[in-house]
């Protein structure tokens, strides 16, 4: 069987899997961004309780493996009465894990905004929330974009683990195809290419575009 025939035959399954991966990626990314923002801001709080819980969260999720976290969320939480569907458990685990890494990016991004910006905003009597949302975060965001690009690619790769709790993503489909055809090189080669294209054709250009948009907002592009 030629590679072309293999593709025609298995194409729909690769497409199905890729779509699930795409949805897992998107949901996990949204969750990761929300958690990163929250935990990053909390880590900068002067309240030791708020700061402490952020530190614990970040340490816990960065210090242990994503796979173990996934199993915890899917297999262990039900023992405590919290049952998540495998699809939900998948993106929640990935989002929570990468969100912990993102929190450090958010914290660093905020701290990289010059003091003078805080002082200028304060001297206009802006409330702490407005200072953060309107003055600091937009500037922090620009500083954060390049590392977020890398993080989102890590997140994409991380979604492959959800196949281990039988979410029918690209990796899961690939394993199924391999099991029925025994064409390992073609199967995993194709999966490899799809993941790669996903990262380089969608994620990276999107982040570049976002950076351009932000730079334009700053009047920095020619």
């Amino acid at each position: 069987m030629s590679y072309w025939e293999f593709l025609v035959e298995q194409g729909p399954r690769f497409v199905d899997g890729a779509l699930i991966t795409a949805v897992q990626f998107a949901l996990a990314a949204v969750l990761a961004i929300a958690i990163a923002l929250l935990a990053g801001l909390m880590k900068l709080s002067s309240n030791p309780l708020i700061k402490g819980s952020a530190v614990i969260y970040i340490e816990l999720f960065r210090g242990t493996s994503l796979l173990v976290q996934l199993y915890w969320i899917f297999f262990v939480l039900p023992l405590f009465g919290l049952t998540l569907e495998k699809f939900t458990a998948g993106f929640v685990a990935v989002g929570m894990n990468l969100g912990a890494y993102g929190a450090e990016l958010v914290r660093g991004g905020i701290q990289s905004v010059p003091r003078g910006q805080w002082e200028a905003a304060y001297s206009l009597s802006m409330s702490p929330a407005k200072r953060m949302w309107r003055i600091i975060l937009p500037q922090a965001l620009l500083n954060m974009l390049p590392p977020w690009g890398n993080l989102l690619i890590e997140l994409l790769k991380g979604t492959a683990l959800v196949s281990l709790i039988s979410v029918a993503d690209l990796m899961f489909e690939a394993k199924q195809i391999n099991g029925s055809t025994y064409l390992s090189a073609q199967t995993f080669g194709t999966a490899l290419i799809i993941y790669y294209l996903f990262a380089r054709v969608l994620v990276t250009p999107f982040m570049r575009w976002l950076e351009q948009v932000m730079l334009r907002k700053l009047g920095r592009t020619e």
Partner: peptide, 23 residues
Amino acid sequence: FQHFNLFPHMTALQNCMEGPVQV
């Protein structure tokens, strides 16, 4: 301030309007 500290993501006009509108 010595180093102006204008908000870089806003135009001159937006910089001036920020306080009156938001505060």
